[in-house]
């Protein structure tokens, strides 16, 4: 499952040892650059840099990167279709639905911005476990209860995903997919209800366990010390400056 894949990659990446703030700055700078510069050459350059960073120093497998970007790519293509098509009589097409060169160019530009932005987010997502990110968010003075709910949500969702997958697999083994539509609806409602009950049950047990360890108002954990890397900061500045200079030079 993609959720596990991205998170596993983040835990294993050598960039996990880098400061979270530096990786957030790099990723956000690339995301904004992909959005604000022209699709050609800005977005293309951001996409190339992101892929080079992910496959190079961050040491993420190419097959994983391909797997996690296929789904958003599908959404981007579907979303770009209405931009390519318009109602009218010009261009070519079927009835009032027409495609023109301008429409295709706009849709292609959107696709380029979207792909580059998604890859720029992947720079952060595949190198930074959510736990590190949530710990870092404390420095932004976000209230503790909100961060704790986010952290607990993150921890619970993997347990729940495993439970859901196990329940669905059990249904498949019992040939649940071959049943009538009515039976499948009933089974799906029972599945959803069972998972919801298990969620509350696990939450209650988690609460009791935490109370046994003296939990009252916050769940603070220590973060490993990560030295500031001026080389990494310089690399971020150089990458972003290069894209902007390239965009200004060629447009």
């Amino acid at each position: 499952m993609i959720t596990h894949s991205i998170d596993d990659a983040a835990w294993a990446s050598p960039w996990r040892a880098r400061r979270v703030g530096e990786k957030v700055a790099l990723s956000l700078a690339l995301v904004l650059t992909a959005l604000l510069t022209p699709a050609w050459p800005g977005s293309l350059a951001v996409a190339v840099i992101s892929v080079a960073l992910i496959l190079g120093p961050a040491r993420i497998r190419a097959s994983l990167l391909l797997a996690v970007t296929l789904l958003p790519l599908g959404f981007l293509v579907v979303g770009a279709l209405p931009v390519a098509i318009h109602f009218g009589t010009d261009g070519w097409g079927l009835g009032p639905l027409r495609v023109t060169q301008e429409g295709l160019a706009a849709a292609a530009g959107l696709l380029a911005h979207g792909i580059a932005g998604t890859l720029a987010i992947m720079v952060l997502a595949t190198t930074t476990p959510m736990v590190d990110l949530l710990t870092w968010l404390r420095t932004l003075r976000i209230p503790d209860p909100i961060l704790e709910i986010a952290a607990l949500t993150y921890r619970l969702l993997f347990v729940l995903l495993s439970t859901t997958m196990a329940v669905l697999a059990a249904q498949r083994m019992r040939l649940g997919a071959e049943a009538s539509v009515t039976r499948r609806w009933a089974a799906m409602a029972a599945t959803t209800g069972s998972i919801m009950l298990r969620t509350w049950d696990r939450t209650t047990r988690l609460q009791r366990g935490l109370e046994g360890r003296g939990y009252e108002d916050s769940l603070r954990t220590l973060a490993p010390a990560r030295p500031r890397s001026w080389a990494f900061i310089a690399m971020t500045g150089a990458c972003v400056a290069a894209v902007w200079l390239l965009s200004w030079g060629l447009t």
Binding site: P145, E148, I149, T153, L156, L160, L168, T203, Y215
Partner: peptide, 27 residues
């Protein structure tokens, strides 16, 4: 959350459940 830590866990469970719902396909 300040009223009771249990509320935090219940809300976290609801958040996780909302996320997991996307794994359940409707016929």
């Amino acid at each position: 959350a300040r009223q009771s830590p249990e509320n935090k866990l219940l809300l976290a469970a609801a958040g996780a459940f909302t996320f997991v719902l996307s794994a359940i396909k409707l016929p």
